[in-house]
Each structure stands twice: as C-alpha cells, then as structure tokens.
Design a protein around this nucleic acid. Structure first.
Lengths: 200, 200
DNA sequence: GTCTATAGCCAGATAGAC
DNA sequence: GTCTATCTGGCTATAGAC
C-alpha cells in the first residue's frame, strides 16, 4: 500500500462513518476498522480528528455543489432547469443517501467552521437563477411570488425526503422498498407538479 | 428546591442542550451548568445520560404529535386542513426552532431506540387523511396523484426550511431577519400555492 | 509507512459526607 | 436531596520500534 492508496482508503472510510454518525458520534477506531488499517495511520495522514472531518466535509460539499449548479449556473429555460435538477439530484442522492443529512446536520452544529471554509472555497451562487425567475414573472409566464420562496419550495420538495427519510418512514408507515419506489416516482412527479403550480 | 422543581429544572436544561447539540455532542456538565445545579443531581434523577436523553426525546415528540394531528385527525375539509396545518405548524416551530432538526437527526442516529419507543407510545396515524385525499381525487376535486406523495410534498414544504435553516441561509444569502420574514410569509404562501397546485 | 504500546485527558458515573 | 471528591473507562493522540 503506497501513500496515495492508504490516504484514499482512510478518506473513504471516514466519509462512510462520519456521514452515518456525525462528527461527535464517530470514533477514530471505527474509521480505522472500516479501512482495515491501524488507528495511528489516521493521525499520520490527517494529524487529528478535526482535520480528517474537515477533509470529509469538504469532499461532500464539493460533490454536492455541481448538482446545485445544474439549476444555478446553466443556460436552460426555467422549466427545463427544474426537470433536469429534480431528476438528476434525486439520482445523485440515491447513490449518496447520507449526504444531505450529513451536511444539514454538521452545518447546524458547526456553523462557524463552515462559514470560514466557505469564504475561501466559493459556493454555488443562486443570483442568476433568481433573476431569471423575476424576468419570467414580469413576462407573465410564472405566477407572482418572491423568487427566493420559489427556490426554497423547489429545494424543500427535492431534498427533504432524504434528510427526513427515517421520520417519514416511521410517520407514514413506508417500507424501504416503498421508499425507493416513491423516490423513483418523484424524479418526474415533482417537476411536473411544481411547474404546473408556478405557471400562470 | 423540592423534588418536582429540580427534576423539571434538569429536564428543561437537558431539552435546551440536547436539542442544540444532539445526544453525542452533549456533555452532562453542560446540562448541569445550564440548570445551575450539580452534575451528580442529573444521575440522581435520571440514572444515566441515555435515560435523560430518552425523556427529552419523548417530550419533544409529544409536543410535535398534536401539530401533526391537526392534519391527520380532524374533521375539516382538505383545503381547510392544509391552511390550518401550515400556519399553525410554522407558528409552533418559530417558538421551538431546534425541534424538527433534533427529531430528524436523532431518528437517523438511533432508529432502533425510536422504533421500540414508538411501539408502546403510539404515533400520529395518517390513514384517514390519505383516505380523504383518495376520495377527493375520485370526486374530481384534486388532481390524480399518489396520496402519500401529496402528503410528503406538504410536509417537505412546511418542515424543511427549519431543518435546513443554516444550509439555506448560507446557500441563498439569507440573513436572520430575512429568514424570519420569509417564514412569516410562508404561513399563508405555502397553503395557497399548494392548494392551487393540487386542485384540478 | 506501518505497527504496538501507552500517555494523558475527559466524561459518565458513583461513594459518601452533610 | 444536595454537594464534593473520586473512580473508571474510553477516546484522542503520540512515542518509538521496525
């Protein structure tokens, strides 16, 4: 095992454990076990737990950002953006199920770190999408409503089912397989429904 | 300070800390400090951390349940339920801002405990609401769509902004006061928008 | 680079005086 | 019931052999 391999092995193991249990709930030993490697190696490559966590968080955010840019930074029309975003975001999350909950949660527990990290890393910028909405409203194609509320609705419909998966399963008596089916169904259902609800 | 008072004092302090930092991130000492009381008292009244946490979780869930029953277990018509639920739920959360995130998160980290707890405590049951939706669809008043997806959309629009508050503030450049204003606005905005989107 | 052993600390829990 | 003092275990982190 060379440097590159071991370092990546550790990062992958750390991603898996941190995303499931969060910063405070994770033990370094668990990560070592997951990587089939010695605990001292974690410190050799990543100095301490905080730095390993930051590497994981950064990686997660950088995976998520391009998904958001599907809607923030592309040249498509509004309806096309909405269809593209919902379908592709849901596909993406089905392959990274713990990601949204992880980001949401650690953002709550650790806002100061995140803000520091954001300032020198850059984040998706919704401005152009919000402007696009305003123009469509002026043109009479979309019902009058604050653009940020519209975007918030879209993000809610797309992201929440995954963040609140467990709560929803308990509350609505949904099995694992039914949940999967519902998410597949949402890939098209949300977009049509949402477009229909904003069109004037 | 008599038994009743101290016990309640501890529970209140525990609610405040656990909801902000979660089970794993909370220190017993912090709870003791918050309650202006000695750490040993926590163990005197609640035996150990797990049991104190369970008391907090139970209390949180029992506060939330009546809010859900506004929509699950009342005699109103669908549109009326939607208006009532969104407005009253948002009001409720504005006074208990950490509650939804806390429940969602601990449910993810601790599903087995929750399921055990649910079985002998009872939870809000959405069956009658789902049936009501089906009937409205048959009657041609609501667009054809799976009732559970409709309910999931409603919960997403209402709950997600609070669970993902920090993420949204960062992503959409929303200040504290703008966030408050948006949530006030949503008390009526969501309902009208949602009703409009499902009406055929 | 990788391992074993261990230092050092911190948090949960308890003993026991009052 | 409430407090101080302390035990105990577990966890992060490091020292040091290979």
């Amino acid at each position: 095992m060379q440097t590159q391999n071991t370092e990546q092995l550790i990062l992958n193991a750390a991603i898996s454990i941190f995303q499931k249990k969060g910063m405070a709930g994770t033990r370094m030993q668990e990560i070592a076990d997951e990587a089939n490697i010695n605990k001292a190696m974690l410190h050799y490559y990543y100095r301490n737990k905080q730095q390993l966590f930051e590497a994981v968080f950064m990686q997660a955010f950088q995976k998520l950002a391009p998904q958001l840019n599907l809607i923030f930074a592309s040249e498509m029309g509004v309806n096309e953006k909405i269809r593209k975003f919902t379908a592709s975001y849901i596909d993406f999350i089905l392959e990274n199920p713990y990601l949204p909950g992880f980001i949401v949660q650690e953002l709550n527990y650790n806002p100061e770190f995140v803000l520091k990290f954001m300032s020198h890393k850059g984040k998706p910028d919704p401005t152009s999408f919000l402007t696009q909405i305003e123009e469509e409203i002026k043109a009479g194609n979309i019902k009058k409503m604050p653009p940020k509320q519209l975007l918030l609705n879209l993000l809610s419909l797309t992201i929440f089912p995954f963040v609140g998966e467990m709560m929803l399963k308990v509350l609505m008596d949904i099995s694992d397989s039914e949940f999967q089916n519902m998410m597949e169904e949402r890939k098209t259902l949300i977009a049509e429904h949402f477009i229909n609800s904003i069109s004037s």
